Simulated scan of single mutants.
Amino acid sequence: MKASGKSAIVAVVTAVTFALTASPATAAVSSGSDFFSLDDAAAAASVTQALDVSSTTTNSDISVDLETFNVIVDGLSANGISSAGHNFDVQATIDQAISEIGSSRQTGWGMPGECIISAKRWILAGGGNWTGSGSPVANYVGAAKVPLDQLAPGDVIQYQYSSAPAVWATGVHTVLVVGVNDDGTLNIIESNNPAGSGRVQAQKNWKPQPPSDFEAVGWRF
């Protein structure tokens, strides 16, 4: 679909704001699985560049994140975890995600700092067969849907717009599960929260809390 320069910029702004905490009264959605035509890339370039976050972070920032994360996983990386039920090396995936904590990457359509692109990078690092792309549904072609109460380390949680799951809407977000606690809460690693930061971080005792009109879906490769 051919869009004007103005609409392309609006579309890119939407594309780079997969906000975890956004709770729009009416979700802003695109008209298809792609936000803008490739012909509009030049018009959108200035927006993407403005949201670029340097991949260089200070050692102090990283050390604080890693210290926090060591508490979160409680020796998970050193002890190893089971890959049972997964068709890839879950430990290698988690190790890759751990290695990126505290770093930031460029955000924007298809950029490495986006939440879903980061989750895909981590799964691929463990040899996972994440070959899907496009929409929040098409990305999980070949993956198995997992009930939220049966999630395990290595699974991915995708927030999707309930009435139109295949549409990129403000509120879409992706996280990697790295631990399941006795109380049912999760330990996760995510990227690009807050939106536009491209920053990788860990959270402990996390629960899926999708925005209004969104749902959380578990996936396993």
Results as ranks from 00 to 15, higher is better:
Lys2Ser: 10
Gly5Asp: 10
Lys6Ile: 11
Val10Cys: 07
Val12Leu: 07
Ala15Asn: 09
Val16Cys: 14
Ala22Thr: 14
Ala25Pro: 07
Ala25Ile: 01
Ala25Asp: 11
Ala25Gln: 05
Val29Thr: 12
Ser31Phe: 10
Ser31Thr: 14
Asp39Lys: 13
Ala44Tyr: 07
Ala44Ser: 14
Val47Ile: 14
Gln49Gly: 05
Ser54Asp: 12
Ser55Ala: 15
Thr56Glu: 13
Thr57Phe: 01
Asn59Trp: 13
Asn59Val: 13
Ser60Glu: 15
Ser63Ile: 10
Asp65His: 07
Asp65Ser: 13
Glu67Pro: 02
Thr68Leu: 15
Val73Pro: 00
Gly75Tyr: 06
Gly80Met: 01
Gly80Glu: 09
Ile81Pro: 09
Gly85Phe: 08
His86Ser: 08
Asn87Ala: 08
Asp89Arg: 08
Gln91Val: 11
Ile94Lys: 03
Ile101Asp: 02
Gly102Pro: 01
Gly102Gln: 06
Ser103His: 06
Ser103Gly: 05
Arg105Cys: 01
Gln106Cys: 08
Thr107Gln: 02
Glu114Ser: 09
Glu114Arg: 03
Ile116Gly: 01
Ile116Leu: 10
Ser118Lys: 05
Lys120Trp: 04
Ile123His: 00
Leu124Ser: 09
Val137Met: 07
Lys145Trp: 05
Pro153Asp: 03
Val156Cys: 04
Gln158Met: 14
Gln158His: 09
Ser162His: 13
Ala164Tyr: 11
Pro165Cys: 03
Pro165His: 06
Pro165Val: 06
Ala166Gln: 08
Ala166Ser: 13
Ala169Lys: 01
Gly171Gln: 02
Val172Trp: 10
Thr174Ala: 04
Val178Tyr: 03
Val178Gln: 03
Val178Pro: 03
Asn181Met: 00
Asp182Phe: 06
Asp183His: 01
Gly184Ser: 06
Leu186Val: 03
Leu186Ser: 04
Asn187Ala: 11
Glu190Trp: 07
Ser191Phe: 03
Asn193Met: 12
Ala195Cys: 03
Arg199Cys: 02
Gln203His: 09
Gln203Arg: 15
Lys204Ala: 11
Asn205Phe: 05
Asn205Gly: 12
Gln209Ile: 13
Asp213Cys: 02
Phe214Cys: 01
Phe214Pro: 02
Ala216Trp: 01
Trp219Phe: 05
Trp219Val: 00
